[in-house]
Design a protein around this nucleic acid. Structure first.
Length: 929
RNA sequence: GGGUGAAUAGCUCAGCUGGUAGAGCGUCGCCCUUACAAGGCGAAUGUCGGGGGUUCAAGUCCCUCUUCACCCACCA
């Protein structure tokens, strides 16, 4: 083994071997199957921390269950991500001075396919860097012919059942992307805006109660005035009731519109009069339907004013029109006042532009009947969310679910399988031919296909069963569906999780997955969301490989949407990473993810943590080197003729089993933080700090018998090898590398640790003596170390130790471990102090009732030792006071369980004894001065 | 407006069914002891957000308030 741990060297080679040897494929063996379908990343995307986290978790689950002997499949694939991908390609075209319109549909989608071919492997190769043991041979793409056929099938069946329909209504319209989007794709954020108070003159000499010949309405979107078809007041509102049925003159438009009464109006808000624009506001739309108001659309698809408006405004951009209209109102003396107002502005999640409610014809999924079984599946625990409380979020949304607008006016995606004849009749089917045959339409009847494509999430909703071959009834579907768990962030519970549950239940009659593990989002060390514009993005690959400062700065400041931010980003980056980021390796990165993965809350990613886990890898590396150096001469198989296990050998095996138990327990509840901590604690504290140190006096002692040596060597190797398997799902690379060595020494067969069985929990005969013995040893060693450390006795200086107030067991244990104690604590001697003999002046540490004495011998300053004792006594006294008080409380003694009371009594007694001994020692030291 | 989660050591976070407050990083000593200075050994550090309540006993259960984060809905 190389003397230093170098992750880049070993990580590079292993993944390729694993993949080419087919280790990631399902074994085809095992009673049970285990399957996870990857949340398909955008095919043209690149890996971010969220992917890193998400995939690290899935890989741990997959490797763990694979090692448990299950027939394990991690189903891979990528998503065509309609809008996102189309935007990227459009931006590229724009840079070349082209637009998609010029290119035309066919040429454009051709370009997207080219781009997909070019960049599509980027994210998958990055997933490989993470060590993800994905079965790449089964990789799917949402626009593969097979998957597309499934999408079409689902659309057609839903249409035939009347669950997909085409309708004309208000949708969220993105004026930049020129497409409808679903409610979920609209982000409502509060922004600073204004309230404009406009006067609408009353017709026919009507007057308000105050004798005014106008009413005032307030609006945040003045330009919509052009589409007003009524003014509404609350039917209970005494102020305006007499005006209902009257008309007002719509300013600047030369139109009259009625005053109507509708309970939608809140008399307390604004002026109590509301302008109604049915074609450009969701609430007004409903009001309009109730009162049969005309719907006047005043916008073009690009957000300009259309010909339904007065000539003066036609062709103006909606925001220019707003300014113009306010000016005109002011000039007409109809602007009463303007107030600053904070309001929620709807913006497209992709484009960032203000979304307009817009009247169009779109395709919808009627969701109500699909939602019901989906709610029940979670309610009756067929599907379980982890953590459980996300179920409430899910229920809340599902119970109030709206019909889903699934058509998008894009070119990249699954084209809707619908055709129209010249009368506008709709024909849905798999192809034009099929439709012609089915509906007996001869070639004289021209048919044109619907231009739109489906929402990306429509196809994603079929992911678990579509990737396994549906609608064919494949053996994979049989074996691996329902999948076991879906691992994802809470941000796509509605987008994806809910819709998968609905669609999968509908089309397979079964749930898509048994559990949904919802994890938190990765944020930066200060809890900020990582984003390009904030310049705080960390690339997982950079954490693995390292990156120098200049490259990092360049990466963070190039290709920015807002170049003016670059300077500040450069400054903060230089400050935060003055030396760039060093290379930590995949294993360290993964372990960091696990350690931070507690109970689904968001994660602030701290570089200090990853460094700590890189050090952990280093620790494993070096401990293994020690083991191999000291065991290379043992017989390379278990047929060690004679073995005589030391208590510490038995102890470490018990500790290993306890750790394994914890790991298995916590894996069941997805507590990767507790899993990683259990392994870390065991390996570093128990195996390295104690066990390895305690084997040294055994291995380096001439008195050790061959049987003892064999036993310890074997245990060193055996526990190491088991620990590697224990840790492999979390640290795949380093464990594989080291296991290859361990395997040789232990004479094991098997080509890879990946396919070895996970360590087995074994029923162990209770071995209290080993635990007691090692605890005894640890206490004495720690006592002596404490004296050395606190009293500044140089570690190299040999000391003599006396044990006072010892019993028979102490005597026995001392004989057994004298050599060990001398070696580990650099002792010249250690012996029992006969009760008849006077103890010399000494520093003292209590181990239970036994005193560990280090004679002063001119080494130790009396004053320091008194201080040390004093500190201990103060602490003990506080405890004693607390316990005394508690035990003198009759309520406690009477009502607390007897064993609790007894325990506290024992503790108090022990403390009192210790205290007396400390006091006595303190007095003795006093006599010296 | 409705909902969810959070508030514990300087920092990032654990703390299960109530019974002596923990880890990592950082800090302070002492050590290059033949696996590891990416290390070893020792040490310090907390009115568990505030206030009530239940209980013999509350970081843990209940109520309330404050602050923060997020989600959903939305008043023009």
């Amino acid at each position: 083994m190389e003397s230093t741990y170098d992750p880049s060297r070993l990580e590079a080679s292993w993944y390729k071997k694993w993949e080419t040897r087919g280790y990631f494929k399902p074994s085809g063996k095992g009673q049970e199957a285990y399957c996870i379908a990857i949340p398909p990343p955008n095919v043209t995307g690149s890996l971010h921390m969220g992917h890193g986290f998400n995939n690290a978790i899935m890989d741990a689950l997959i490797r763990y269950h694979r090692m448990q002997g299950k027939d394990t499949l991690w189903q891979a694939g990528t998503d065509h991500a309609g809008i996102a991908t189309q935007m990227v390609v459009e931006r590229q075209l724009l840079a070349q001075g082209q637009s998609r319109g010029e290119l035309g549909r066919e040429a454009f989608t051709e370009k997207v396919w080219e781009w997909k071919a070019e960049s599509g492997s980027k994210i998958t190769s990055q997933l490989r860097r993470l060590g993800s043991s994905i079965d790449w041979s089964r990789e799917r793409f949402t626009m593969d012919p097979g998957f597309s056929a499934a999408v079409e099938e689902v659309f057609i069946r839903l249409y035939e059942e009347g669950l997909i329909y085409r309708g004309s209504r208000l949708v969220n319209w993105d004026c930049k992307l020129l497409t409808a989007i679903s409610d979920l794709e609209v982000i409502n954020e509060e922004e600073a805006g204004s309230f404009w108070y406009f006067r609408y003159r009353l017709c026919n000499d009507a007057q308000t109660k105050d004798g005014l010949n106008y009413i005032t309405i307030a609006t945040t979107r003045p330009e919509t005035l052009l589409g007003d078809t009524a003014v509404a007041v609350n039917p209970e509102d005494e102020r305006f009731l007499h005006l209902v049925g009257q008309e007002v003159e719509l300013p600047l438009c030369d139109r009259r519109i009625p005053i109507i009464a509708d309970s939608y109006v809140d008399p307390e808000f604004g002026t109590g009069c509301v302008k109604i624009t049915p074609a450009h506001d969701f609430n007004d739309y409903e009001v309009g339907l109730r009162h049969q108001l005309p719907q006047i659309n005043i916008l073009t698809r690009t957000g300009r004013i259309n010909d339904n408006a007065p000539e003066a405004y036609r062709g103006l951009d909606r925001f220019d029109c707003r300014k113009q209209l306010v000016r005109d109102m002011e000039n007409a003396g109809l602007l009463e006042r303007v107030e600053p107002h904070r309001l929620k502005v709807p913006r497209g999640d992709r484009s960032g532009v203000v979304i307009e409610p817009f009247l169009t014809e779109q395709w919808y999924v009627a969701t109500k009947s699909l939602a019901e079984p989906a709610i029940n599946a979670v309610k009756n625990n067929d599907i379980e969310f982890v953590p459980k409380n996300w179920e409430n979020t899910y229920f809340a949304w599902m119970r109030d679910i709206q019909d889903w607008c699934i058509s998008r006016q894009l070119w990249w995606g699954h084209r809707i399988p619908a055709w129209y004849d010249q009368e506008g009749n709709i024909y849905v089917g798999r192809s034009e031919e099929e439709i012609r045959t089915k509906h007996q339409l001869n070639s004289d009847t021209p048919l044109s296909r619907d231009e739109d494509v489906l929402d990306t999430w429509f196809s994603s909703a079929l992911w678990t069963f579509g990737t396994l071959g549906w609608p064919e009834q494949t053996s994979e579907l049989d074996r691996f569906h329902p999948t076991d768990v879906l691992v994802t962030g809470f941000d796509i519970i509605f987008f994806w999780v809910a819709r998968m549950i609905m669609m999968t239940l509908k089309f397979t009659g079964r749930i898509p997955f048994r559990k949904v593990y919802i994890h938190g989002l990765i944020r930066d060390s200060e809890g900020q969301k990582m984003s390009k514009s904030k310049g705080n993005v960390l690339d997982p690959i950079d954490l693995i490989d390292g990156i120098d400062l200049e490259t990092l700065v360049k990466k963070r400041t190039s290709g920015m949407m807002q170049p003016q931010l670059a300077q500040r980003i450069e400054k903060t980056t230089r400050k935060e990473f003055p030396d760039g980021i060093s290379s930590y390796g995949t294993d360290a990165l993964r372990y960091t993810f696990y350690s931070l993965a507690s109970n689904g809350r968001d994660i602030n990613f701290d570089l200090g943590r990853i460094e700590g886990y890189r050090n952990f890898c280093n620790k494993i590396w070096n401990a293994s080197r020690y083991v191999f150096m000291n065991t290379s001469d043992i017989t390379p198989n278990k047929s060690i003729s004679e073995v005589d296990y030391a208590s510490v050998d038995r102890w470490i095996k018990i500790r290993f089993q306890q750790t394994l138990g914890k790991v298995n327990t916590h894996m069941k509840t997805f507590r990767f933080d507790l899993v990683s901590q259990a392994i870390y604690d065991f390996f570093w504290n128990d195996y390295c700090d104690w066990y390895l140190e305690l084997t040294k006096p055994i291995l380096w002692n001439e008195q050790t018998t061959p049987a003892q040596r064999n036993a310890t060597c074997y245990t060193l190797l055996d526990v190491l090898e088991q620990s590697l398997r224990l840790a492999h799902p979390f640290l795949p690379f380093i464990t594989e590398e080291i296991w290859q060595q361990a395997k040789k020494l232990l004479g094991l067969s098997g080509d890879t640790i990946m396919l070895q069985p996970y360590p087995l929990e074994v029923e162990m005969a209770p071995d209290e003596t080993a635990l007691v013995e090692i605890h005894w040893l640890q206490q004495i060693i720690e006592g002596i170390r404490n004296i050395r450390g606190e009293l500044n006795i140089s570690p190299g200086k040999p000391v003599n130790v006396l044990l006072k107030n010892s019993d028979n067991l102490d005597a026995k244990l001392l004989e057994a471990h004298r050599f060990t104690l001398c070696k580990l604590c650099k002792l010249e001697s250690i012996s029992l102090l006969n009760s008849n003999n006077q103890a010399p002046p000494a520093a003292m540490q209590l181990c239970g009732q036994m005193e560990v004495l280090v004679p002063l011998d001119g080494l130790i300053d009396v004053e320091s030792e008194r201080g040390r004792l004093q500190k201990d006594m103060t602490r003990k006294q506080q405890e004693i006071d607390k316990l005394t008080k508690q035990l003198s409380n009759t309520h406690f003694v009477e009502r607390a369980p007897a064993e609790v009371v007894a325990k506290e009594r024992d503790r108090l007694e022990d403390l009192n004894v210790s205290m007396a001994m400390l006091e006595e020692q303190f007095q003795r030291l006093n006599l010296l001065k």
